[in-house]
Design a protein around this nucleic acid. Structure first.
Length: 192
DNA sequence: TTGCCGATTACCT
DNA sequence: GGTAATCGGCAAC
């Protein structure tokens, strides 16, 4: 079952936590690639100095953050990589959750051919890596997450009912940034 | 129009 | 742990 729009309209930190254990699905032609979400980060819009939409600043790049919860926000970074985010809350709150890592579930062969790595552990263990493995690019920016190309759903069997969630400061935030130490990164403890 | 730097990764020692 | 790769966004000029 695809997650309903109401799921994404909740508080951004709640969505970041609740996304752990859900399944990110990418359809390419007749191929299905998917993985369990194991690491996320919350970005709190207007009041978050580390967020692209800090101060409600709207630009060509981050305009998708100003859509309602349940849309995608994909951006290009470091001249080489894409990052995939889930927009949360309503239009008045340009907030989002960055998907930082997934555990491959379906389409591992396709992921291997999209990535050029020796060990599977490196397939989707970072925000840029998972975008390469799932062929996520700017074409998917601003789509609703019930799109046939990319969406998120519950696991069929609730195998992760007793997962332990850990939190920490977000990765890659410059120490000069006031949001540097905010603990908005969530991950499934002990998942490699 | 210029110039700095980034929500990263891969590969090196 | 260190850093090159690589280029678009964005603020400042």
């Amino acid at each position: 079952m695809k997650l309903p729009t109401e799921f994404y309209m909740q508080d951004t930190r709640t969505v970041a936590k609740e996304l752990l254990g859900k399944v990110l699905v990418r359809k390419i032609g007749n191929k299905t690639l998917s993985g369990i979400i194991v690491e996320t980060e919350a970005y709190l819009g207007n009041k978050d100095p580390a967020c692209h939409s800090f101060g409600n600043k709207k630009t060509a790049r981050n305009k998708s953050m100003f859509l309602s919860g349940g849309h995608s926000y994909v951006y290009f970074i470091y001249g080489m990589y894409f990052c995939f985010n889930v927009v949360t809350n309503d239009e008045s709150a340009p907030e989002a959750v960055l998907i930082r890592a997934i555990e491959p579930l379906a389409g591992i062969k396709e992921m291997r051919s999209l990535r050029n790595v020796k060990k599977d552990i490196h397939l989707t263990s970072g925000p840029g890596k998972l975008c390469m493995a799932l062929s996520v690019n700017q074409e998917l920016d601003g789509l609703k997450l019930n799109s046939s190309k990319i969406f998120i759903c519950e696991r069929k069997h609730n195998l992760l009912s007793n997962i332990k969630i850990a939190k920490s400061p977000r990765i890659g935030i410059n120490a000069k940034n006031a949001g540097h130490s905010w603990k908005l990164r969530y991950y499934i403890k002990s998942n490699p």
